[in-house]
């Protein structure tokens, strides 16, 4: 595509950019200044103004490629900011929830059930969602040298925000009735969560739309990258991988209950049962086995997988069978 003027080129580029008002304005000014230099150079070489503009815009590169590069960098930066801010919010909410359980105000707002129940339940869910966003937008780019699954990261950040908002509301409603330490932490949560919500909304607007790899694939890639950093971990990784492959070949049905990438539903059942047992392990250690409570924990973990598994990229989404094919799924 050729452009008859610098303005046409800059307008086309601006239309493709998804980097926010300030970023767009700055890029447009820089690009226009550079193109003006190029046009001056071409005119000095004897071209007409129109031919010079055409030549200058051709030399500058396709606006689509340039915008894609700016958008990719900005999406990563936005996702990273959102993930960091959400992790801080989850940490604050976790502390606030812990304090709220120990020293409750005389008349909790809005009522006792919501004051005690909402934050405890939601902070755990927010922790999973924010952790997934952090893994995909901060840890994975750092370890792998490139962003992976930013679309999933922005979804996870949005979910964490939605889950944290009621916690922030409860925290804000109880600032006045508690001690100053608890009040300060609650005030922090009440202010930080809306700020993080703003960052998450920005990340969602700038995130790429294409379906990326599943979160489980990214975790596997990160583990491999980490293992290859030292010779002894590389050796350990080879041993574990070959042992796993050998076990899968010898007992495919049994191993399918552990393979989250190929058999997400079966593996989720195993993980849920393990979580139910692990969460009740302290009771088991003192000989107070509560089977219904353990079953309830396992059920909650499985429901969590049903509700959030697709959102957080823990299982293949409907219409995107590629990850399964890529690892040689048997069904």
């Amino acid at each position: 595509m050729t452009y008859r003027s610098i303005d046409a080129y800059v307008d086309d580029l601006a239309w493709r950019l998804r980097v926010g008002m300030r970023g767009r304005r700055r890029i447009m000014r820089e690009v226009a200044a550079h193109l003006a230099d190029l046009v001056a150079e071409e005119e000095a070489a004897g071209l007409t103004p129109q031919a010079a503009a055409r030549r200058a815009t051709a030399r500058f590169g396709a606006p689509a490629d340039l915008a894609a590069e700016f958008n990719r960098d900005d999406a990563l930066h936005s996702a990273r900011t959102a993930a960091w801010s959400l992790m801080v919010c989850v940490a604050g909410a976790f502390v606030a929830t812990g304090l709220a359980q120990r020293v409750a105000p005389a008349n909790p707002w809005p009522d006792n059930a919501l004051y005690y129940g909402v934050p405890v339940m939601l902070v755990q869910v927010a922790g999973f969602c924010a952790g997934t966003a952090f893994l995909l937008s901060v840890v994975a780019p750092w370890m792998l040298g490139r962003p992976r699954g930013l679309a999933t990261a922005s979804r996870a950040a949005a979910a964490a925000t939605v889950v944290l908002l009621p916690v922030a509301v409860v925290a804000a409603g109880n600032i006045g009735g508690v001690g100053w330490v608890q009040g300060a932490v609650s005030a922090f949560v009440a202010v930080a969560v809306p700020v993080a919500a703003g960052f998450s909304a920005r990340a969602a607007l700038r995130a790429e739309r294409t379906a990326g790899p599943s979160t489980v694939d990214v975790i596997a890639e990160c583990c491999e990258a980490l293992a290859l950093r030292w010779s002894w971990t590389a050796q350990l990784h080879r041993t574990v991988t070959s042992t796993w492959a050998g076990a899968a070949a010898r007992a495919p049905h049994l191993m399918s209950w552990l393979e989250l990438r190929r058999h997400p539903w079966r593996a989720a059942t195993t993980i849920s049962v393990a979580a139910g047992i692990a969460l009740k392990l302290p009771d088991l250690m003192i000989g107070d086995l509560d089977l219904p409570a353990a079953a309830l924990e396992a059920g909650a973990a499985y429901i969590g997988f049903i509700v959030f598994g697709g959102l957080l990229g823990l299982r293949p989404r409907v219409g995107t069978p590629e990850p399964l094919d890529a690892v040689g799924a048997e069904g």
């Binding site: 820089e30 550079h34 030399r59 500058f60 590169g61 340039l66 700016f70 960098d73 930066h77």
Partner: peptide
């Protein structure tokens, strides 16, 4: 002999 615009994303990335 790169497309001249390709240097700007790199500059913005480095500045960030």
């Amino acid at each position: 002999d790169l497309p001249e615009g390709s240097v700007y994303p790199a500059l913005h990335r480095l500045e960030r």
